[in-house]
């Protein structure tokens, strides 16, 4: 019974609902078009306006400069945050391995060893530091997520808009630190802050008004 009812009501309501929807739509289009199109339709009738509109449109397109990007001849004007490739500033890298561990597809290869530095003062302690032997990114695996750049605590990795490093063999896509270092030259300076953006954290910290000491507690409070 209930099945029957629901079927019947749906069948009855269907056309009504559809009718209402089309009414709404036609109302809307009429409202949108009326101010512009109605007088035109009255002036010239039938087939003629459409035909000449077509001619006018194509003529206008002809005298408008085209937006074709002539890529190999003219290099594209890429936005500053383009994710072209990943550049390495070797001096900043401490071989902490954070990037390699965070990489979702494990495409970063890092080898390093420890070096012992002699004490700088008499009787001082010897220090140890990491020396980077190998830093490779396999761009055939990399998915350009940028997590390595985000996690690097010492700003050793950067996005570069350079994108012309295609190879004919997928095995040649593993680039070592010398190649990654060359790309540092193509890294653009960080873009200026947007107008109205909050100041950088350092600036905010410095420009905080000096807080007076709590020598005299405010009156009226226990």
């Amino acid at each position: 019974m209930s099945d029957d009812d629901s079927v019947r009501t749906r069948a009855e309501r269907g056309p009504e609902r559809r009718g209402a929807a089309t009414d709404n739509m036609s109302d809307r289009t009429m409202d949108a078009e009326q101010p512009e199109r109605e007088p035109e339709r009255g002036e010239r009738g039938g087939l003629v306006p459409g035909i000449f509109k077509g001619l006018a449109t194509t003529a206008r397109a002809m005298v408008t400069p085209s937006h074709t990007a002539e890529y190999p001849d003219v290099l594209p004007d890429l936005p500053p945050r383009s994710r072209g490739t990943i550049a390495l500033l070797e001096e900043n890298c401490t071989s902490c391995m954070l990037c390699a561990r965070e990489c979702p597809d494990w495409c970063i290869y890092i080898d390093s060893h420890k070096e012992t530095l002699p004490a700088t003062t008499e009787g001082g302690r010897e220090r140890q530091r990491n020396v980077l032997d190998r830093f490779g990114i396999d761009f055939s695996l990399c998915m350009y997520c940028g997590i390595c750049i985000e996690v690097c605590p010492f700003d050793a990795l950067f996005w570069s808009p350079e994108f012309e490093y295609a190879e004919t063999d997928i095995r040649d896509m593993l680039h070592e630190k010398d190649r990654l270092g060359e790309w540092m030259a193509t890294v653009p300076p960080p873009p200026a802050l947007d107008p109205g953006a909050a100041d950088a954290a350092e600036v905010t910290a410095l420009s905080k008004p000096v807080r007076p000491g709590r020598a005299t507690p405010p009156a009226g409070r226990p």
């Binding site: 194509t58 003529a59 397109a61 002809m62 408008t64 085209s66 937006h67 074709t68 002539e70």
Partner: peptide, 8 residues
């Protein structure tokens, strides 16, 4: 034709 179609 190319320029009328926004091409070169």
């Amino acid at each position: 034709m190319a320029h009328m179609q926004g091409r070169l």
